[in-house]
Each structure stands twice: as C-alpha cells, then as structure tokens.
C-alpha cells in the first residue's frame, strides 16, 4: 500500500508537541491533524529506534 501524501502546510506546532509528548494518545490537534506514530527502525538490529 502506498503511503498517503503528506501535508507539509500543516506541520505540528507547540500544542501538537504537547499532545504528542504529554498524552501520547490519538488526538485531533489544531487544524484537525491526527497525532500518530511511525517507528524508525534500526536496520542493523531490526528493532524500533524511535
């Protein structure tokens, strides 16, 4: 499945970061942006780095 295009005009701001870091819950931020997470994988260990 292809990844959807990203909307670079709606980058997370301070409030979004607070939601992301404090709550870590699926939330609708300013502008109706969903907070989701996508792991960054260490290709040597095959485990999630972040």
């Amino acid at each position: 499945m292809a990844a959807p295009p990203r909307d670079k005009s709606a980058l997370p701001n301070r409030d979004m970061r607070r939601q992301t870091l404090d709550a870590f819950t699926l939330a609708v931020g300013p502008g109706g942006i969903y907070v989701v997470f996508q792991p960054i994988v260490d290709l040597a260990t095959r485990e999630s780095f972040a």
């Binding site: 499945m1 819950t25 699926l26 907070v35 989701v36 997470f37 996508q38 792991p39 994988v41 095959r46 485990e47 999630s48």
Partner: peptide, 10 residues
C-alpha cells in the same frame, strides 16, 4: 510499520 496509535510494531 504503518503510522498509527498505539505505536505499531515493527
């Protein structure tokens, strides 16, 4: 891993 919540497994 696809984007999602909770954090998706690798």
């Amino acid at each position: 891993a696809k984007p999602g919540f909770p954090i998706p497994p690798v």
